[in-house]
Computed example of a mutant assay.
Amino acid sequence: MGLPELWFVIVAVLFVGYFLLEGFDFGVGMLMPIVGRRTGIPPDVRRRVALNTIGPVWDGNEVWLITAGGALFAAFPDWYATLFSGFYLPLLIILVALIVRIVAIEWRAKIDDDAWRRRCDWGIVFGSWVPAVLWGVAFANIVRGVEIDAQKQVVSSFFDLLNPYALLGGLTTALVFALHGAVFLALKSADEIRGDAVAIAARLAIPAVPVAGAFVLWTQIAYGTGWTWILVALAAGALLAVVALTRMEREGWAFALTSVAIVSTVTLLFASLFPNVMPSTLDPEYSLTVANASSSPYTLGVMTWVAAFMAPVVVLYQGWTYWVFRQRISTSAIGRSHGLKFTS
């Protein structure tokens, strides 16, 4: 394996980590309007419980996206440039949604007003649903290929990106992230909130299985290779097991298996893409590959040494954060403040 191939794997790992960790953040935000609705708990209290489950970790999870984007820019500048030339509008919408979500979470407690908090809550919902859908649409189009000309410019229109395969990818990421978030809520909450999260997860697992199954099967048949059938089996088997585990209220195992499903699916996308990084549907000669889109060997070499020293530090620190804030959160742990009250 040469340095370009190594950095393709590193970029894939960074996006796997992002979707795995940010996936349950998105899911929690997506479910904020409905979680605990039938429990009789005041809306503000149950929403604060939901926010506290991700409060200590959500911003750290987003670092994976920043790192993935930086690695993509440095290791594969042509891939980065072509991607943004053709996916500018959807990526801009994702960025705006993420900014709205960040501002809503951080500023929710700044004004002691119910109307203000409701607007912030809807900002969190918007900032969770939109990226959850559009990331699936974007990555499905990357695997499927777009119209790239000889100048490495994407000439497809925005509406060309809204093809059936990409829309199925967007529906898949939305459903799986919502399921992942519901299971995480059940794992991290107590009392009535936990019970309601378990019930939501059990209901979400039913549509998530056929939709995600159809997407990974389509990906495998159209773009996969022989060995990637293993990833299809892992993703499908994990989601099928989640259906039973959520009904048994085994949220720990259910969360482990939604994680397996996400890791397997994202790995399948990158494995189906290799050795291309952006296939061209106009002419295979115009496709960007690991070889023709990468930086110089010197640049990749320096990046490799930096990553070798820094990556373990970042992973250990984030793991320590999850360990410190591992306890469940109950309604009794929420104080009078309307903001995030991180409990350990």
Rank of each mutant, 00 (worst) to 15 (best):
P4I: 08
F8M: 04
V9G: 01
V11G: 05
V11C: 08
E22K: 07
D25E: 08
F26N: 00
G29V: 01
M30Q: 12
M30S: 08
M30P: 07
P33Y: 04
P33R: 01
I34A: 12
R37H: 12
P43E: 15
D44V: 07
R48L: 04
I54D: 05
G55P: 11
V57R: 01
N61S: 05
W79C: 03
W79K: 02
Y80I: 09
F84W: 15
S85A: 10
I93K: 03
I94R: 06
V96H: 06
I99V: 15
R101L: 07
R108Y: 10
D112Q: 08
D113N: 13
A115Q: 14
A115V: 15
C120F: 00
C120Y: 06
D121E: 12
G123H: 12
I124V: 15
F126C: 01
F126G: 02
G127Y: 01
W129S: 04
W129G: 04
V130A: 01
L134E: 05
L134W: 11
W135D: 00
N141L: 03
I142E: 11
Q151M: 11
S156D: 14
F158D: 10
P164M: 06
V176P: 10
H180D: 03
A182S: 14
V183Y: 06
V183A: 10
L185K: 11
A186W: 00
A186G: 14
L187T: 01
I193D: 04
R194Q: 15
G195C: 04
A197L: 09
A199R: 13
I200L: 11
A201F: 08
A201C: 00
A202T: 07
L204I: 00
V211L: 11
F215W: 15
T219E: 14
I221A: 13
T225R: 14
I230Y: 13
L234S: 08
A235Q: 07
G237A: 00
L239E: 01
T246C: 13
E249K: 15
R250V: 03
E251Y: 12
G252V: 09
W253D: 12
L257K: 04
S259H: 01
V260Y: 07
I262N: 05
V263Y: 05
S264L: 04
T267V: 07
T267R: 01
F274V: 08
N276E: 14
P279I: 09
P279H: 09
S280A: 11
S280K: 04
L282N: 05
E285L: 09
Y286S: 05
S287H: 06
L288Q: 00
T289V: 09
N292F: 07
A293H: 02
A293W: 07
Y298R: 09
V302A: 06
V313Y: 07
V314C: 07
Y317E: 12
G319K: 01
W323I: 14
F325R: 03
R328Y: 10
T331P: 08
I334W: 10
I334H: 05
I334R: 06
R336L: 13
R336C: 05
G339L: 01
L340Y: 08
K341S: 15
K341T: 15
